[in-house]
Nucleic acid binder design. Sequence first.
RNA 1: GGAGAGGUGGCCGAGCGGUUGAAGGCAGCUGCCUGCUAAGCAGUUGUAGGGGUGACUCUACCGGGGGUUCGAAUCCCCCCCUCUCCGCCA
Length: 424
Amino acid sequence: MLDIKFLKDNIETVTERLATRGTVPDLSFIKSLDEKRRALLGSVESLKQKRNTVSQEVGRLKKEGKDASSIMTDMQGVSAEIKALDAELAECDGALKTFLLELPNLPHDSVPTGRSEVDNVEVRAWGKPKEFGFVPKEHTEIATALGILDFDAASKLSGARFSLLKGAGALLERSLINFMLTIHTTEHGYIEVLPPFMVKESACLGTGQLPKFGEDLFKIEGWDHYLIPTAEVPVTNIHAEEVLSVGNLPIKYTAFTPCFRKEAGSYGKDVKGLIRLHQFNKVELVKFADPAKSYDELESLVSNAEEILKRLKLPYRVVNLCTGDIGFSAAKTYDLEVWLPGQATYREISSCSNFEDFQARRANIRFKPEGGGKNRFVHTLNGSGLAVGRTLVAIVENYQNEDGTITVPEALRPYMNGLEKIQR
RNA sequence: GGAGAGGUGGCCGAGCGGUUGAAGGCAGCUGCCUGCUAAGCAGUUGUAGGGGUGACUCUACCGGGGGUUCGAAUCCCCCCCUCUCCGCCA
């Protein structure tokens, strides 16, 4: 959510900057709506002041045993008027809030301007795609043949876009989770969190999934709860409605959770394999930062996620998403894209963003600045560290051998009971 | 699921229809004092929003939302959460 004060004083700038994202909002009415609101507020507050003083007067008269019935009757009218104005004011506030909740974040100055993913800018690349002495296969083919992935069983149980891992496949997924969490907690200083996988509507409003993107969420029938689409939602909202002390910043959490997404509108995209599922595992990194330092924190968050790929020796590149491709709540996003030899392409495996105070304002997460003064909103950041299923895909494809086996990356072996090779 | 108790300021805790933004205590801050010394005394300390260049001032906030009333932290209704006991259960 953008700051209404900033917005109404900078309508043209805001419009221009939002336009670079591809949405051209009509902000013209904001100013008049805000003026209307302030006018209403002024009159209702002076009426309330009148009511307060007269009510005290009534109390005093009654105490003295005098008659107050005529002013009491007068005040009935005043109260009715207050009620009507309050209702009008609430309507005004509601309209403003609804509008603000559906307005995306402003892109940071360092975000390249562009319309779609083709305008994203590669920042750096690490590792060289391996040369295979044979034609590398896609993960589905390899893993299915090895009996560690069973899509037939998954679709019998749950339909399309679900997966079922077996044997060494399930072990690989579990080991990856453990591996990532261990590095982030013991080397990168994150506190591990295991949050609920269902959250209330307010949490989804806080991080920006609602009200606009409800069609992507699974809602529990007959209940005000949603399956989390990412750990970002429960973990960021841990500190909703709180005032943190600046000395504790940055607060860094890492969390493993499954993620549930409807993927509505993605029909035909990535239909094969483990790339796009209704349920997938992810290890998430979340930070609450001092606004002055949040962009440094974004860089270190990205490097924390990169470290996982480096340890696994998986080639990747870092991409600075352009204005047309960053998410609704983000001010700036780096994607990590891992090389997939079976598809001969880089695929997104992590997305790391600084949301600045966009989420903090929604979730009301503040901090007391150094030396006191008014409470301010923190900056929130998060990133995948990493998407576990896609990491498994990358390992299967990058570590495949001509004979159909998969070599286990060295860094992972301690987590897999020393297993060096996955074979039938 | 059944029965009960409760949700008040940074924390503890009073208030239960009328100067109560809220006693008292703790904690914090500021002075003063200083041979009763891990002390004493005095003052002060919330958030959000509106108006004013400003000193300042007004409004709202006692879990959330409605209602009754001239007036609600206090009464009524609905909801949420926490705790205790019972039942069920991994």
